[in-house]
Simulated assay, not measured.
Amino acid sequence: MSDRDASTPRVILARHGETEWTINGRYTGITELELTPRGEQQVLSTGKLLVGTGKLIDPVQLERVFVSPRRRARKTFELLFGTESELAALNKVEFTEDIAEWGYGAYEGLFGEEIVARRNEQGLDTERPWDIWKDGCEGGESSEQATQRLDSLINRIRDIQRPYMHGEKPVDIVLVAHGHILRAFAKRWLGVPMGSPLAMMLPPGAIGVLSYEEHDINAPAFLVGIALPLEEK
């Protein structure tokens, strides 16, 4: 099997930078938090290395940028692409709840151990430990609800990219969002049920890339390793 051709459309996942709740491990969904100074530097460093003409994320190659409406994601978008990005002027930026963080409901702002203790007090999880991928959140989003909104966005993306699988037009797409929902997106991109195990890590400020095998819209794939664009001499 050949390696991915550079002309195959990609979906690039960009997680927002560090926040105070990222540091201490609180579940952060709808709560509006600023990036820490270190979080801003994480994103700026990523942008300096990977975003720009001839770089891995080339604005000229982008057809759409989907951004979570949460403040930390909006700030990350600005740090990656600049406050005066031409992408907005070209109507290529869309702020959408489709990639807002998983709705944690009653678990918003709690630590993992606090959630487990709360559920134990309610007599839940007697047969197996709580698994957010399967069980969702009390008063928040279920696995089925998260699947539905992500699948809807994936269908939109495939409709955009389907006609250009051999590079007829650059149609890369960027998602600027959150660690949990971006990992959920990757699961659904690959057709993995939300409740099925698929170990993934995406640190604050990190970039991930999805694409297709053999230019085939029906063969979505991870790009496990990325070769950076060649430097012009």
Rank of each mutant, 00 (worst) to 15 (best):
75 K>F: 01
109 G>W: 10
157 I>N: 09
75 K>G: 02
215 H>K: 13
94 E>P: 01
218 N>S: 11
202 L>W: 01
47 G>Q: 10
22 T>D: 14
187 K>R: 13
132 I>C: 13
77 F>Q: 10
198 L>Y: 09
206 A>Y: 01
11 V>K: 07
118 R>A: 14
66 F>T: 01
206 A>H: 07
40 E>F: 00
83 T>C: 02
154 I>W: 05
45 S>T: 14
5 D>V: 05
184 A>N: 04
165 M>N: 07
222 F>Q: 04
219 A>T: 00
24 N>R: 12
37 P>K: 06
210 L>F: 02
175 L>I: 08
186 A>H: 02
22 T>Y: 06
164 Y>T: 11
49 L>Q: 15
167 G>K: 06
151 D>A: 01
89 A>F: 02
206 A>V: 00
35 L>I: 05
209 V>G: 07
15 R>T: 12
232 E>Q: 14
67 V>G: 04
204 P>I: 00
223 L>F: 01
24 N>I: 10
212 Y>Q: 06
163 P>Y: 03
122 Q>K: 15
216 D>Y: 01
149 R>T: 02
38 R>G: 06
195 G>K: 08
73 A>C: 14
34 E>P: 01
182 L>M: 07
135 D>K: 05
211 S>Q: 05
166 H>L: 07
52 G>L: 13
105 G>C: 12
120 N>S: 13
168 E>R: 06
87 L>P: 14
169 K>A: 14
97 E>V: 02
148 Q>T: 14
2 S>L: 09
84 E>C: 04
87 L>H: 09
82 G>A: 11
92 K>G: 11
68 S>T: 03
109 G>I: 05
35 L>T: 06
161 Q>M: 08
52 G>V: 14
138 E>R: 04
189 W>E: 10
204 P>F: 00
151 D>Y: 00
223 L>M: 14
29 G>K: 08
209 V>A: 11
78 E>R: 13
128 R>A: 13
145 Q>N: 03
29 G>W: 03
146 A>C: 13
53 T>G: 13
126 T>P: 00
72 R>A: 12
81 F>N: 12
104 Y>N: 12
65 V>E: 01
165 M>P: 02
85 S>N: 12
147 T>A: 13
35 L>M: 05
25 G>P: 13
97 E>T: 10
116 V>T: 14
155 N>E: 14
13 L>D: 11
76 T>H: 09
130 W>A: 08
18 E>M: 12
1 M>E: 03
174 V>G: 09
10 R>E: 11
96 T>Q: 09
214 E>T: 08
22 T>N: 15
